[in-house]
């Protein structure tokens, strides 16, 4: 049931290597990869949850060996074929045919407005909030998508079956577990939930440390 992107708490990755503030991109192809990904997304053929899941369902060997923007490129190529914007034959080298979707392509003049508009994830919902700040809650025992076997979820394994308390209510947001599989927005209440480090780790660094996660109401039960 696990996928390699769910790495919070994992051992063996070595030191974190700080870097200076000035360098935004470390290679020319990194900036092209970013720009191609954002420009392709402007066709509206997928949402952010679908695109995250496309990276997460890369073969574990690929996810692990690919650098950050390689994951983006691989996920994008897979999505372009799924969305029928590009064919497998074209990826393999056949001469590209003009696309019927070309009239919707993001133009340079529209870029600032598109980036400034963003893509808010809050939506109206009929689901009433069951919890409020201060309430004790427990997460699902398994960090699994309840709708789709092996599907996308935003509950990390390290926080499954853990007890914490609500520290903030964020309003009602699109449920990624549904949205990533094109099953609808299914918006529901979203909360920031704080867990004592001792609830998550066998050897917490400090008795007062906490980890806070943003979790949807359906991930939670009263505790």
């Amino acid at each position: 049931m696990s996928r390699p992107h769910d790495m919070g708490g994992r051992y063996g990755d070595g030191p974190v290597v700080p870097e200076e503030e000035g360098t935004v991109f470390h290679a020319d192809w990194h900036k092209r990869a970013l720009a191609i990904t954002l420009a392709s997304a402007a066709h509206g053929a997928w949402n952010i949850d679908v695109s995250r899941h496309a990276r997460e369902r890369l073969a574990p060997m690929d996810y692990t060996r690919f650098s950050y923007y390689e994951k983006w490129m691989a996920g994008l190529a897979d999505l372009l074929v799924e969305a029928k914007l590009v064919s497998r034959e074209e990826l393999a080298g056949q001469a590209p045919a003009p696309s019927p979707s070309a009239d919707k392509t993001l133009k340079a003049a529209a870029v600032p407005a598109v980036l400034a508009a963003g893509g808010p994830a809050d939506r109206p919902s009929d689901v009433a909030p069951e919890f409020q700040p201060g309430d004790a809650v427990r997460t699902r025992r398994l960090a699994a998508n309840a709708l789709v076997d092996g599907g996308h979820t935003r509950l990390p394994r390290y926080a499954a079956g853990a007890t914490g308390h609500v520290v903030r209510y964020h309003g009602t947001h699109i449920l990624p577990d549904s949205s990533a599989h094109r099953l609808g927005d299914a918006a529901e209440p979203l909360y920031a939930v704080a867990f004592p480090a001792s609830e998550l780790w066998a050897h917490p660094e400090h008795p007062r440390d906490e980890v806070v996660l943003d979790l949807w109401q359906s991930y939670l039960a009263p505790a």
Partner: peptide, 27 residues
């Protein structure tokens, strides 16, 4: 990776699915 990005950019540009000038503005 660099060839991979270049190949994808070329395919998308030739299909009219991305505008090279828009990429420059994003970057």
């Amino acid at each position: 990776p660099a060839l991979r990005v270049k190949a994808l950019e070329t395919i998308l540009t030739q299909k009219g699915l991305i505008d090279p000038a828009a990429l420059d503005v994003i970057i």
